[in-house]
Nucleic acid binder design. Structure first.
Length: 719
DNA sequence: GCGACATTGTTTTTT
DNA sequence: ACAATGTCGC
């Protein structure tokens, strides 16, 4: 067979990776060095040259987008469908395993997936059940704790409170949360991974089966794996399966959510005989842009070491624009966009990148005022919209009566006279009898525990769910959805509201019917799941795109994080100021600067032809005016690569820096400082406002929670 | 059940 | 500053 198409257009390093012998390989792939191409060609090589069945290959990515792009490119290269090939996200593949082996995983057949919002609601319910005060036990913190433990592979019984009462309570919450999930037959995102890991670990036969089935494992964006994901990989690989890991330590920007850069270092230990291949030739950016990126990232310590180079020309210098304020910054960018467009280029070739979402607003306002179409990435996604989640909750109840989260969501949505009191009764009864809310409601309606009015209302809801369940049997999926929308009263509820917002909700609900109509069961992915369950899982695992109209010629706006993996001819890196980027939080907390620098590196390397960096002299942030120094990252780019477009002018307002005031705190107290109060005990100052006799500080007390105290009266002592 | 008022947090995000 | 959420009263 002629396989030259697999090796054509690859450079030496790429070819070395693609044709590597049967052993583990760590590919350190710099930005723009053809990472995806190497992965895709490697898989094609394994199948067409090594003669492996697609059935024996698993490729793991982080996002659905990356997974579908990879599958598409593989099939293009092979010129045939790659049936049997497992390409997917960690979560998607874990989900697949759990569906195939739900019994061994001790899950109900129709188990459902909680997204983060569902999870938070459930945590809140659990806190209520434990009679814990939400202000002392913030649900988000508990959620974070639970996910953190799961990401480390730890169950409540593995945890030791080490005598710490806070820890003890959190473990209790985790335990109760787990019980609630099990009873409801739902799993959260981390659970998908942990449960599938345990499934294989505890079932020797299954493990043997999959370990011998998969003869090659490939991982994308390896620097973003967390502990649990890495353990999952090692387990499936076993002792024999070589792992082909592609990553870039310089682009690790998700440490804050548990990604372990150390996994790259450990990789060579855990997979003995691993070869390392570096991809350093960049096919994306001009010389100037790469030199700027290289110079910046040099300032990080403990890198694995890599230097990008290009055979391309030097290109234009990086432009630096120091704006007067954020409106001026936006105006500058808008002017550049307009010029570019008027020269006959496309606006979609331009990206505006920023550190935090809040920064997009001024740009949006300016673009609107100047009539420049734009698209902001990373808003609410389709399946995350409230009305869609309401509709899905009805469907989930149809599929699984034990799903208490869904029950609570729609029992009174639209309102049907089932108020807090009635719901509390149902909840108590459910807890007392260790039942689902749905079952408890049935018992209450037939029993005597409810007032006549409430009983009628609850009975009405139960009848509705029963009716939906019966009608749905045998109906095509989209008709099930349609029927539910009509009979639940959801559509009518939004329909009678004539506001624009409500109208778009109705449209979204109709869109849901279309989504259902277009949904196809994939036997590989979904096994023998019924259509409804498969559709609901799909909705949870792939939240859909944010906004429509991707085809209009729009300026692309997004955070630096969402820009990873993308490239644009012209890039604006905005808000390059100390405090914003690097972000204050990362400056204050030690050891987080390097990740910010990597984020900046990611930003710079998005640009193909031209990079602009902008910063402002003053900026309105969280209500008050701030005067920020230009980001240290600007200073780390050699001056000869930078060209200042508007040097600081004498016309700009005199710079005085009240930021020093803020850092000093008030009256000798600072944020982060530990203090003791006569009544509330010991705590830490978390905020302050006002001055003189009205100065107040917020203190988070260990025993009494968070309080605002007037300094003049509180008599706080520094610890 | 809804509107008025208060409180709170405000980096980054995928699944 | 501001949005998003929670609380309270009718």
């Amino acid at each position: 067979m002629d396989v030259s198409h697999i090796l054509e257009h690859l450079n030496d390093a790429q070819r070395q990776a693609v044709t590597a012998p049967n052993q583990s390989l760590l590919v350190l792939a710099g930005a723009g060095s053809g990472k995806t191409r190497v992965l895709v060609h490697r898989i094609a090589w394994l199948i067409q040259v090594e003669g492996l069945s697609p059935h024996s290959v698993m490729a793991v990515t982080f996002t659905n987008k990356a997974a579908s792009e990879m599958r598409g490119r593989i099939e293009d290269l092979l010129a045939m469908p790659a049936a049997g090939l497992w390409v997917g996200t960690f979560h998607g593949l874990s989900h697949r395993l759990l569906r195939r082996h739900w019994q061994e995983a001790k899950l109900p057949q129709g188990f459902q997936i909680l997204d983060s919002e569902d999870q938070l609601r459930l945590v809140k319910r659990v806190l209520k059940g434990l009679e814990l005060d939400e202000s002392r036990w913030p649900p988000r913190q508990a959620q974070h704790f639970i996910n953190g433990q799961k990401d480390k592979g730890l169950r409540p019984q593995h945890l030791d409170d080490s005598g710490d009462p806070v820890n003890r309570q959190l473990i209790r919450i985790y335990s109760a949360y787990e019980a609630a999930c099990n009873r409801a037959g739902v799993v959260d995102f981390a659970e998908l991974l942990l449960r599938s890991l345990e499934l294989l670990r505890d079932n020797k036969e299954l493990l043997d089966h999959y370990q011998s089935r998969f003869r090659h494992l490939l991982v994308d964006e390896f620097q973003d794996t967390n502990e649990l994901q890495y353990a999952w990989l090692r387990l499936i690989a076993g002792a024999r399966t070589p792992v082909f890991a592609v990553g870039d330590d310089d682009q690790s920007i998700y440490g804050w959510r548990g990604a372990k850069i150390e996994n790259i270092q450990n990789f060579q230990k855990d997979f003995p005989g691993t070869e390392v291949v570096r991809l350093e030739q960049n096919y994306r950016s001009t010389g100037a842009i790469l030199q700027a990126a290289n110079a910046l990232i040099e300032h990080n310590e403990g890198r694995l070491g890599k230097e990008l180079w290009t055979a391309d020309e030097e290109g234009e210098a990086v432009s630096l624009y120091t704006a007067y304020d954020e409106r001026d910054e936006a105006r500058f960018v808008a002017d550049q966009v307009r010029d570019w467009y008027e020269q006959g280029n496309r606006r979609s070739e331009i990206a505006v990148l920023y550190r935090s979402n809040a920064q997009s607003r001024v740009f949006e306002e300016t673009f609107i005022a100047m009539g420049i179409p734009y698209r902001v990435y990373g808003g609410l996604r389709f399946f995350e919209r409230a009305e869609i989640k309401d509709a899905l909750a009805y469907l989930r109840l149809v599929a699984n009566k034990d799903d208490d989260t869904s029950f609570e969501r729609v029992v009174n949505q639209p309102t049907r006279g089932i108020g807090e009191r009635t719901i509390a009764l149902i909840r108590d009864s459910a807890r007392a009898n260790d039942q689902s809310l749905h079952q408890a409601a049935i018992d209450l309606v037939t029993g005597t525990g409810l007032a006549a009015r409430a009983r009628t209302a609850v009975a009405g809801f139960l009848t509705l769910i029963k009716e939906l369940t019966e009608v749905c049997v045998g109906l095509p999926l989209h008709e099930q959805v349609e029927h539910m929308l009509e009979h639940s009263g959801l559509k009518e509820h939004y329909g009678k509201d004539k506001s624009e917002k409500a109208q778009s909700r109705v449209e979204n609900l109709e869109e849901l019917v279309s989504a259902a109509r277009g949904f196809r069961l994939d036997p590989e992915e979904h096994g023998d799941m019924d259509e409804l369950t498969a559709f609901l899982s799909h909705a949870a695992l792939e939240a859909g795109e944010g906004q429509g109209d991707p085809w209009e010629d729009c300026v692309q706006m997004m955070t630096l994080h969402s820009a990873k993996g993308l490239e644009f001819p012209k890039v604006f890196l905005c808000g390059m100021e100390e405090g914003l980027f690097p972000h204050r939080m990362s400056i204050e907390e030690g050891g987080r600067l390097e990740e910010e620098r990597r984020l900046c590196y990611v930003g710079i390397t998005r640009a193909r032809q031209k990079l602009y960096i902008t910063c402002t002299e003053r900026r309105r942030l969280y209500g008050s005016e701030t005067y920020n120094a230009p980001s240290r990252f600007i200073g780390e780019i050699p001056g000869e690569l930078l060209e200042e477009i508007r040097p600081r002018l004498a016309t700009s307002e005199p710079l005085y820096r009240p930021s020093a005031l803020q850092d000093d705190g008030v009256e000798g107290f600072q944020i982060g400082q530990r203090v003791v109060h006569a009544k509330f005990g010991e705590g830490m100052i978390t905020n302050h406002e006002g001055q003189g006799s009205s100065a107040r500080v917020q203190v988070n007390f260990e025993g009494a929670g968070s309080k605002w105290l007037v300094l003049a009266y509180a008599n706080l002592q520094a610890v």
